[in-house]
C-alpha cells in the first residue's frame, strides 16, 4: 500500500453521562469510540460496518471534528485535524466533507439548490459572480442532475435526487476526504444502485478518499476496497473487502457475515448460520476484556482478561482476537 493519506491513531470519543438538574453529577462514561487506529491511502474506499450503537457514526463525525475527540490524532495529508484551533479548523473544513443518511433532513428546506451549492462553493474561496453559474451547472451535471432544476427547493425532489444534491454540496468545496454515513439506507433498492454507482465513479475519477459507513454488508462489500468491522467502539477486524466477506477472521465478523440474507434461495438453503444469542451489551457498562466474549462461541477464559489489540494476521489483514490463529487454522 502507498503511504497513508489519512492516518488515525488511537482515536477516542467518550461522552460523560450526567444526572441532575442543577448540580450535574457524572455517573458514567459512554466510550462510543475507544481507541481506533487505521490508515487509508489516497483514493481508497474504506467500508465501515457494525451494528447500531457500535460507534461507527460517532467515529465518522469524530474524524471530521464535528464531535471533538477525547484523545488521539487524525492526520489528513500531513495535518493533524484534532490539534487545530477553532479558526484553523474552520478554514480546513473544505478538505473533508460528510454525506448524511437522511436526504430529507440534510438539506435546508428554505434554500434552492442553487443557493445551497453556491453557498458551499463560496464558503472557502472567492468566486467571481460571472463564474458561479457555470460552476453550479458543472457540479449538477457531475452528480447526474440537470442544471435546469437549480432554482427548485429540496422538497420538490425525490429521495435519490436529494441525495445527489447532498453529494454535490459536499463536492462543492473540492474535498479530499468524504465520509458517507449510511448514504443509501434511506433509499429504495432501485435508487440505492444509482447512488452507489455515483459514489464509486466520483471516487475513481476524482481520487477521492471515501469512508463508507453502513450496516448493510452487501453494499459495503460491493463498493469498498477494504472493510473495517466495529463492535462496541473498537475495530475488531480490517482487511480487503472480498476477503473479510468470504473468510472472516474475527468471530463477530463471522456471525455478521452469516447473518446477511442473500437473495438467492439456493444459496440461502445451503448456508450455515452463526446465530448470536443476546444483544450487543450496553456501551455504558461494557464487558471486561474482549467486549464480544459474552456472545462469542469461541470464548476462552483469557478472553475476559485483557482487551485484545489489533494484530497483523497476514500482510493485508488485521484482527483483534487472541484466538484468531487457532480458530482460523482449519
Amino acid at each position: 500500500m502507498s503511504e497513508a493519506f489519512l492516518q488515525i491513531e488511537n482515536l477516542k470519543t467518550h461522552f460523560p453521562v450526567e444526572r441532575g438538574m442543577i448540580i450535574r453529577r457524572r455517573i458514567g462514561t459512554v466510550k462510543a469510540v475507544d481507541g481506533v487506529t487505521f490508515s487509508l491511502a489516497r483514493g481508497e474506499i474504506l467500508g465501515l460496518v457494525g451494528e447500531s450503537g457500535c460507534g461507527k457514526s460517532t467515529l465518522g463525525r469524530t474524524i471530521l471534528q464535528l464531535i471533538p475527540p477525547t484523545e488521539g490524532t487524525v492526520v489528513l495529508a500531513g495535518k493533524n485535524l484534532a490539534g487545530l484551533n477553532k479558526h484553523d479548523l474552520r478554514e480546513s473544513r473544505a478538505d473533508f466533507q460528510m454525506i448524511f443518511q437522511d436526504p430529507y433532513a440534510s438539506l435546508n428546506p428554505r434554500m434552492t439548490v442553487f443557493d445551497a451549492l453556491a453557498e458551499a462553493m463560496r464558503a472557502h474561496r472567492k468566486i467571481p459572480a460571472a463564474e458561479i453559474n457555470e460552476r453550479v451547472a458543472a457540479l449538477m451535471q457531475k452528480v447526474g442532475l440537470s442544471p435546469r432544476f437549480v432554482k427548485k427547493y429540496p422538497h420538490e425532489f425525490s429521495g435519490g435526487q436529494r441525495q445527489r444534491i447532498a453529494i454535490a454540496r459536499a463536492l462543492a468545496v473540492e474535498p479530499k476526504l468524504i465520509i458517507a454515513d449510511e448514504p443509501v439506507s434511506a433509499l429504495d433498492v432501485s435508487i440505492q444502485a444509482q447512488i452507489i454507482n455515483l459514489l464509486a465513479k466520483l471516487s475513481r475519477e476524482m481520487q477521492l478518499t471515501l469512508v463508507f459507513i453502513s450496516h448493510d454488508l452487501s453494499v459495503v462489500k460491493h463498493i469498498s476496497d477494504r472493510i473495517a468491522v466495529m463492535y462496541l467502539g473498537r475495530i475488531v477486524e480490517i482487511g480487503p473487502a472480498a476477503q473479510v466477506f468470504e473468510q472472516p477472521l474475527h468471530p463477530y465478523t463471522k456471525a455478521l457475515v452469516s447473518a446477511v440474507p442473500i437473495p438467492d434461495p439456493e444459496r440461502e438453503k445451503q448456508r450455515q448460520r452463526v446465530i448470536l444469542t443476546g444483544d450487543p451489551p450496553s456501551p455504558l457498562d461494557p464487558p471486561s476484556g474482549c467486549s464480544f466474549h459474552p456472545r462469542c462461541s469461541y470464548a476462552a477464559t483469557e478472553c475476559s482478561r485483557a482487551v485484545p489489540a489489533l494484530e497483523i494476521f497476514d500482510p493485508a489483514r488485521t484482527v483483534a482476537c487472541i484466538r484468531a490463529r487457532e480458530i482460523n487454522q482449519a
Binding site: 428554505r110 451547472a137 435546469r148 427548485k152
Partner: peptide, 18 residues
Amino acid sequence: MPDVAEIDAAEPGASLWR
C-alpha cells in the same frame, strides 16, 4: 462543457412560502 444557458432557463421552484 456545462450548459450555463440551462441555468438561466431554469424553471423557478416553489418555495415553501409560496
